[in-house]
Design a protein around this nucleic acid. Structure first.
Length: 372
DNA sequence: TCAGATT
C-alpha cells in the first residue's frame, strides 16, 4: 500500500499545485527529458493575427480529435478542430488546432486550459500564427552547449536573430544535468538561417568550446525502420500505467470489487454483454467508464473536472450538471474515462478529496443517479 | 547525444 500511497500523493500534490496556482508553464512532470518552456502563451507577437484560432501543443500521444474537441468545447462553441497526424502512420503528432467562433472563448481557453496536466503531459495553449511557408522549417538543433548554460541564456544568445517560439535544453533524466544539446524554434525560417550563419562554430560568451547550430531533423523524415516500428508495435493498452500503478492494479481491483461490486472485464466484452443481455455494469456507459462526482460547488465548471481527472488518464468527456434557470451547478457532475484502471485510480484517489470547503464523493456512476 | 509548434 506504500507504493500506491506515494503515487496518490504525487498526483494529488501536482493537482493541488495546479488547482491553487492555475496553469503555468510546461514543466518536468513525470521525468520529461526537457526543462521548462515558459514562452508566453498569450503573446501571438502580431496584433493582426486571428484571435479565434489556437494551437494546442504537448497533447498526450493517444488523445483523439474527438477528445480534443470535447475538452475545448467545454469552454465555448468551436468552429473547427483538428488533431495533426502523421500522414503515413496516422499517429498523432501531439498537437492540434482549435478555432472558436468567439475570440473571447479563445482567450478563455488560453487562460483556463494552458498548463493543464493530461496524463504525463502539460498542454500548451496559444494563439496560432497564420500558416505560411515562411514559418516552416525554422527549428534548430544546437549541440556543444556549456553544461551550465540555462534555457534563458540560450534564448538570450539566439534572440538577436529573431523571435523565438520555443527553446529547450535536453537534460539527463536522472541527474537533471544539461546534456549540452537543445533546440531553438524561430518564428521565421530566415531568422533560423541567420542564426546558423552567426552562431555555428562560435563560442558563446565565457564558453571554452564552440557550439554546433544546424537545422533540426524534421519529424516527417523518419527512417523506414522507425515508421515500421510505430506501425507494428502498437500497444494493446492506450496508456502504459506508471510502475506503481501497475503494481497495485490487482490490489485495487480487489478494493473496488468490495467497494463497488465491479469486476474487471475487458471493455469490449462488457459492451457485448450489456448490448446482448441488458446487464448493467456500474460506471460502464459503452464508450468508457462513467464516473459520478458529487458535492461540487455551485460555481464549479467543466475545467475543474478536467483538472482533477486529466492527470489520471484518458478522459473523453466531462459534464457539470446545472440548474436550468440559474445555470449554477446542482452539486454533481460526470466524467467519462476510457480505461478501467485509470478510472479506478482516479476514483480511489479523488473520493474524499477536499475541494475548497467540500469533500467530494467520487464513484462509478450507477443507475440510481441522474442519467448523464 | 534530436524533443515534437503551423493544419
Amino acid at each position: 500500500m506504500v507504493l500506491v500511497y506515494c503515487f496518490f500523493q504525487q498526483v494529488i500534490a501536482a493537482m493541488e499545485t495546479q488547482l491553487s496556482n492555475g496553469p503555468t508553464c510546461n514543466n518536468t512532470a513525470h521525468g520529461s527529458a526537457t526543462i521548462n518552456n515558459c514562452s508566453s502563451p498569450v503573446d501571438s507577437g502580431n496584433t493582426e493575427d486571428s484571435k479565434t484560432n489556437l494551437i494546442v501543443n504537448y497533447l498526450p500521444q493517444n488523445m483523439t480529435q474527438e477528445e480534443l474537441k470535447s475538452l475545448f468545447g467545454s469552454i465555448g462553441e468551436i468552429e473547427s478542430c483538428k488533431l495533426v497526424r502523421d500522414k503515413i502512420t496516422g499517429q498523432s503528432l501531439g498537437y492540434g488546432f482549435v478555432n472558436y467562433v468567439d475570440p473571447k472563448d479563445a482567450e478563455k481557453a488560453i487562460n483556463t486550459l494552458n498548463g493543464l496536466r493530461l496524463q504525463t503531459k502539460t498542454i500548451k495553449v496559444s494563439y496560432a500564427r497564420p500558416s505560411s511557408a515562411s514559418i516552416r522549417d525554422a527549428n534548430l538543433y544546437v549541440s556543444g552547449l556549456p553544461k551550465t548554460m540555462t534555457q534563458k541564456e540560450l534564448e538570450q544568445l539566439f534572440s538577436q536573430y529573431g523571435r523565438i517560439i520555443t527553446s529547450r535544453i535536453l537534460v539527463d533524466q536522472v541527474t537533471g544535468v544539461s546534456r549540452g544539446v537543445g533546440f531553438i524554434r524561430f518564428d521565421k525560417r530566415i531568422e533560423a538561417e541567420e542564426a546558423i550563419k552567426g552562431l555555428n562554430g562560435q563560442k558563446p560568451p565565457g564558453a571554452t568550446e564552440p557550439i554546433t547550430v544546424k537545422f533540426a531533423n524534421n519529424p516527417s523524415q523518419k527512417t523506414n525502420q522507425a515508421i515500421l516500428s510505430q506501425l507494428y508495435h502498437s500497444p494493446n493498452r492506450r496508456y502504459p500505467a506508471p510502475l506503481a500503478q501497475q503494481a497495485q492494479r490487482f490490489r485495487l481491483d480487489n478494493l473496488l470489487n468490495i467497494a463497488y461490486g465491479v469486476k474487471r472485464f475487458p471493455p469490449m466484452t462488457i459492451d457485448g454483454m450489456t448490448s446482448l443481455a441488458g446487464i448493467n455494469i456500474p460506471g460502464h456507459a459503452g464508450t468508457g467508464w462513467c464516473i459520478f462526482v458529487y458535492n461540487l460547488a455551485p460555481d464549479a465548471d467543466e475545467s475543474i473536472l478536467w483538472q482533477m481527472f486529466g492527470p489520471f488518464g484518458a478522459v473523453t468527456n466531462v459534464k457539470v450538471i446545472r440548474d436550468f434557470n440559474t445555470n449554477k451547478c446542482k452539486g454533481f457532475g460526470f466524467v467519462t474515462m476510457t480505461n478501467y484502471d485509470e478510472a479506478a485510480m482516479a476514483i480511489a484517489s479523488l473520493n474524499g478529496y477536499r475541494l475548497g470547503d467540500r469533500v467530494l464523493q467520487v464513484s462509478f456512476k450507477t443507475n440510481k443517479t441522474h442519467k448523464a
